[in-house]
Structure formats: structure tokens, C-alpha cells
Design a protein around this nucleic acid. Structure first.
Lengths: 231, 231
DNA sequence: TGGCTCATTATGTCTATACATAATATCATG
DNA sequence: CATGATATTATGTATAGACATAATGAGCCA
């Protein structure tokens, strides 16, 4: 009995992956061209293209016009980090969400490496709570030149995290993940002893060239950021 | 003079993104069907499909058969984290790569939450060095049942990080990012004062259901993990 | 040897058409 | 009114053919 020939792009993708994993096509090897594979599998070239394109996007294959397709020598694995709204992150873990604004002030601001926003800025500190326990401390700067509507708001009930998502679109952003020691206000809010290692995510978003907001999220001790490889 | 009509899938994608950012199509709104958009832009439906599919994959759109395509209410942003081989990570920053194996031992092992590998295991500790300074400490367990070839190796010159990539394929993996305090061996190897907050990445990879390797990478103080949103 | 042009080639994209599939809306029936 | 069969509809996928584009390599010339 013969093995079913792959007939759709998902099966072809799986078969190509298998050949790579099994070392039939070792790293560096140039694999047959789309036309050959299409003929082998008995499908159209576009179908093979669809299968291979995705593998190239995830870094398993390297494709160049004329040169052909080769198995990546160093399959730089790409893991996708999902960055949900904090309320959803908490609720999806089956915990009750709570929010407390700690402080808010408005004023002129000079752009710095840490907070690359110049001009009038709204500065907010807040705490997100899961099942009554501090979950993450949010310190945020919002550019009032890019998001003037934010000036009228107090962010006492709705977090800036949520409001901005629905009201201030961005086109791109930078993310930075580090480990920091808890200190000062943040340590206090998170009820963490000074010096406790905490996971810090800094995010700056832009609407084209205009800075929208810069946020520094400090997670409570022990927080884990998880994701998957492959799939 | 009229604005050039988008004519390829990238331009159509950009135009759709623009309409979403500019709130012409606010969150939750059902956007015109592929056929309508194809007609509007004067392209084939497949081209529109190509443009919209990618936007749905990144979470900006939600598509359902028959129901149509709507702008996501909570655009869960997805950032891709690239996980290169450490040598490449260092060399791509223009620094000189160095490697030192610290210890190696072999023996039976019970599966635990931290190291979910049972049976004969190779346990290696090593240090990756950038321009002479400690860069990241690697503590690794390799399943000798899944990767028997590794048993003969000493990993004195070539890091397990590199060898495994070329010799032990995996089909899936879990990644966990946390902040930890430096201590013991690791603190010493990284030349970090005890208690310094350090970024820790734990990764477990599997070949189907067989565990391949489990690694705990502890980065030197101040290390930043960066990535981008959008594009 | 070095640099230029040009044909070749594999991937990238688009089109028109067709059928598949999932989900909804409609309608007949009890 | 509830329910289940059925028609409808938007997306999902496949196809053959065509042209676009980038990179290579060969051949030519200085």
C-alpha cells in the first residue's frame, strides 16, 4: 500500500518539513525547484509556492530568485510573542481583573532615550490587579501632540492600556524585554521587596513618525512570558 | 490629480491598513467582501485575499466564512522574537565570539517540571563570551535516548547550542522568559554580584513526543531582548 | 584581469475560473 | 414556536497560464 500523496498546500508543507527534519534534505542543501515539486506532487506550482513561502517566512528555508530554495543553515527560530491587553491577559487566565490608577500629571517633556517623546506629555502610573494581587505596574507617557484627546481623561476607571488601543492607532512599535530590580514606587505598588528581580517590558509605539506612547510594564515577581516554537 | 490606485497585494494591504488606522473602518466594523474590494481596486479576488489573509494572521482582521471580514476589536499585537544561534547573535553585533565549556556529566535523570527529560541525560554547563566578556551562561540537558550521538562528544570546542541545531532536529518547542537573581555557579561565571537581576530564557524542544533538549540561558546583567511591532 | 552586457532561470506575483467549506439565513414541517 | 433540512454566501483553496523581477553566469571587449 502506498502513502497518500500530499495534495494540498498544508500536506505539501508538512512533507517538506518532514524531509528537512529527517535530513533527507540537510541544512544548506538546495531543494528541487517549484516546478519539479509541483510535478512530483501532482499539483500546480502556485500550490507549492504557497507551501514553501510560509516555510521561508518562518526561517526554515531561504529562497532567492534564480538561485533557488535551500534549507537554512542556521534555522533562526522565530517565536511569536502575543501582546494582549492586560485585562484580557488576566481574564484569559481565569482571574478577576482589577485596576488602580496611582498617579497622573501633565507637562512639558524632553525626549530621552528612555522616553523618546517631546512636547506636552501625559504621565500616568497605574497598577493592574489579578485576583486581588498586584499583577503588573504600568508607567506610561502619552504624547498629547499625537493624541490630544487623552488630555481630558483621568484614566481612573479605564486603563490607558485599553483606551489607547481603541483610540490611538499606531503603525509600528519597538519592544524591549529586560530584567530589573524592584525599587521605589514600583516595588511598593507590586508589594515586592526592594531588589527582587522583575521582568520589565518597555514598549514605544509610533504613528508613522509621530510618537504615540511609551510604556514601561513591570511584572510582579515570578512572572513568566511564554511562547511556542514551531507548530 | 488622482491618487494612484493600489495595484498589487502589498499596496492593497497598506491601503486597508490605512483605512483601519484612520478609523474609516473602526474596530468591529465589517469591511467590504473580497469581491467588492477586488472590483474597487481593479484586481483579481485572489490578490485581495492575499492582502487580507496576512492582516488576519497578524490579528488586525478577523475573518469567518460566510460572516465576512471584520476589523478586530482587540488587535492582539504579535511580535516575532528571533532566536538565533548564540554565536551568530554575538557576531552579528560585531563582537568576537568566545566559548568555554564549564562542566559536563552523564547520568540517569528523573523528569521534573524544570527539566522534563527522563532516562540517560547529558548535562552541560558552558559560557558564551562576547569580546572577552561573559555574555550568556548555558545550562543544558540533552536526552541521550533521543540524541544518542551526543554521548560521544565533549562539547569542549563546539557549543551544544550549535551542534544540536545541525544534528538534532526538533518539531516543536516551548519558551519561557523570566527574570531571576544571579547566584552560585552562574553568578560566578557571569561575573555578576549575587542577587543581580538577570534575564533567563528556558527552552525545551521536542521531536514529536520525544524530548530533545532543555536549556536554561542566563544572560549577563543589562541584556535586552528587542523586537518590533507592526511593520 | 577586470568590467560590461545580455540571455537564462527560479522565484514572485497576478488573473480568471472553478470548486470546497463553513456558517448563516430561510423555510417547511411537526 | 421549535426544529431540522436546505439554500445562500463569503472565505479558502486549487489551477493553468502569463508576465515581472532578481540574480547568476556566460560571453564579449577593453
Amino acid at each position: 500500500m502506498t502513502v497518500a500523496k500530499p495534495s494540498n498546500w498544508q500536506e505539501i508543507q508538512a512533507e517538506v518539513q518532514r524531509r528537512i527534519y529527517e535530513r533527507e534534505w540537510p541544512p544548506g542543501r538546495i531543494i528541487p525547484g517549484e516546478v519539479d515539486l509541483a510535478e512530483e506532487f501532482g499539483v500546480a506550482r502556485a500550490t507549492v509556492n504557497r507551501a514553501l513561502r510560509e516555510l521561508a517566512e518562518t526561517g526554515l528555508l531561504e529562497r532567492r530568485r534564480k538561485a533557488g530554495t535551500r534549507v537554512a543553515l542556521h534555522p533562526v527560530s522565530k517565536a511569536t510573542l502575543e501582546i494582549p491587553v492586560i485585562r484580557q491577559e488576566i481574564e484569559s487566565r481565569g482571574m478577576e481583573y482589577g485596576y488602580r490608577r496611582l498617579s497622573i500629571d501633565k507637562g512639558g517633556h524632553e525626549a530621552s532615550a528612555e522616553v523618546p517623546i517631546a512636547g506636552q506629555v501625559l504621565h500616568i502610573r497605574a497598577l493592574h490587579i489579578a485576583d486581588g494581587a498586584p499583577y503588573v505596574h504600568e508607567e506610561r507617557w502619552i504624547s498629547l501632540e499625537t493624541v490630544p484627546k487623552a488630555a481630558k481623561l483621568g484614566f481612573e476607571e479605564v486603563s490607558a492600556n485599553e483606551w489607547l488601543l481603541a483610540n490611538a492607532p499606531y503603525t509600528r512599535g519597538d519592544i524591549e524585554i529586560t530584567a530589573g530590580a524592584s525599587e521605589g514606587h514600583v516595588a511598593e505598588a507590586l508589594e515586592a521587596a526592594a531588589g527582587t528581580p522583575l521582568l520589565v517590558i518597555r514598549r514605544v509605539t509610533w504613528d508613522h513618525d509621530a510618537p504615540v506612547t511609551c510604556v514601561r510594564l513591570t511584572y510582579a515577581a515570578g512572572h513568566k512570558l511564554t511562547t511556542q516554537l514551531g507548530g
